[in-house]
Simulated assay, not measured.
Amino acid sequence: MRILIADDASDQREILGLLLARWGHEVVPASDGLEAWEILNRERVQLVLSDWMMPGLDGLELCRRIRAREAGYYVYIILLTARDDKEDLIAGMHAGADDFLTKPFHFEELRVRLRSAQRVLELETQLEERNRHLVSVNEELRSALDRIQADLVAAAAMQRSLLPQGSPLSQRLALDWLFIPAAVVAGDIFNFFEHDGRYLEFYLLDVAGHGVPSAMLSVSLSRILSLERAAGGAPLAAPHEVVATLNRRFQSDDASLYFTIVYGHFDTLSGIGELCQAGHPHPLLVRRGGAIERVGEGGFPVGMLPDLDYESVRFTLRPGDRLILYSDGVTDCRDAAGEQFELGRLHRVAGDCHDKPLATLTACLAERLQEWRGTGEIEDDISMLVLERR
């Protein structure tokens, strides 16, 4: 070990130095406390043998300065003193001394104290190495988390780009929507597209689970639906046929990999539409006067069981009527007491806003849900798509 000897008595310093060198230690001599302090500030020394009484800077003050500084490693201090009363020992401990040797002392006693100090310092060194390793690991984890977060933000931006970017050009139909993901990326997704300048095809789906796996499947589904159904010249398929095709295509050995969906199309001239409901909450028909009806036949989620039959149901929108599609994140939203928002409250919001613009309806629902859950986190993605015949 490197041992600093701080003693204003040169003979005592030399004797200790020769003895410590004989035991295999490296000795750093200091003629007083001030010189010892200067050495400690420019060199790494972890064990100090210091006389208590020295001119300028005594052993107690040297202890206090060592303990007050931020060296990044531990310095073990043994005070050499002729004092042996209880009050002096307490004062030395308060100043920061680890051990004491009362003059005159036996060399073997010193040797034993040094071995004890060495064990403590070895443990401190091991702890220091572990701390450095932990700091390095934490920095790597932070860097990895930053990259993951950046990827999630980019994925969320890409996912949002797949959502509707504006209403169709038709003067016969108005649309609005609400989208509040529970995480950075979501399992809910929806869209609509025109067909032959007369029909509007639409869907809203909810992939089981949360986070990245659900979001990846929802993005894949969005791309498939948009590319296949928006292809120029493609015939208008019955909603139940589209859903059945998805069910055959997305069978998986993973029982948790499934989704619910409402898929349909609407004739903007006649006001007649068809939709297929597969495990998704029942769409709502809000009549111009405020009456609310349910549409759909339920059905199994997509990807859960093979060779399922799905059904399309017809609906009619007269001018001023609305069709509301929503995910169960709306009705399942919980308040601080764990109570769900439930369908009745959604009915009230839809009924209260039946004669107001669609933007008022979606804004009002978002506000009510925020008030309902308070500061609590969203447990599930919230999405809603609303069509209104003009």
Rank of each mutant, 00 (worst) to 15 (best):
A182R: 11
L200E: 01
E367F: 01
R373N: 05
E124S: 01
E108N: 12
T268S: 09
S31Q: 15
V112F: 10
T362Q: 00
T102G: 08
E342A: 10
T331C: 03
V48F: 12
Q165H: 10
R160F: 08
R198P: 00
G17V: 08
C63T: 03
V28P: 09
L19G: 07
G33T: 09
H282F: 07
F202T: 00
G59P: 01
L123P: 01
E379H: 10
N247K: 09
L269P: 03
A174T: 11
A291R: 13
D176A: 14
A336C: 07
D51M: 05
G197Y: 08
D267Q: 07
T331V: 13
G320M: 00
E26N: 07
A21S: 15
A156T: 08
D146M: 04
V295W: 15
A255L: 15
A363Q: 08
E140Q: 14
V48S: 06
E228D: 10
L141T: 00
S167I: 11
V207H: 07
G197K: 05
Q159C: 00
H240I: 04
V48N: 14
D381P: 01
A237I: 02
S383Q: 05
D309K: 10
T362Y: 01
R44P: 04
T360A: 05
L34M: 14
E26P: 03
V286I: 05
Y258S: 09
G59E: 09
C364F: 04
L169R: 12
R345M: 04
E129C: 04
H25P: 11
A337C: 09
W37C: 12
G290I: 09
A359C: 13
L257R: 15
G299M: 00
E108K: 15
Q118W: 13
V48I: 14
R83P: 04
S327E: 13
T125E: 06
M304G: 02
C364S: 12
R83I: 11
P181Q: 12
V386I: 13
P235Y: 15
I66V: 04
R368D: 04
Q149W: 02
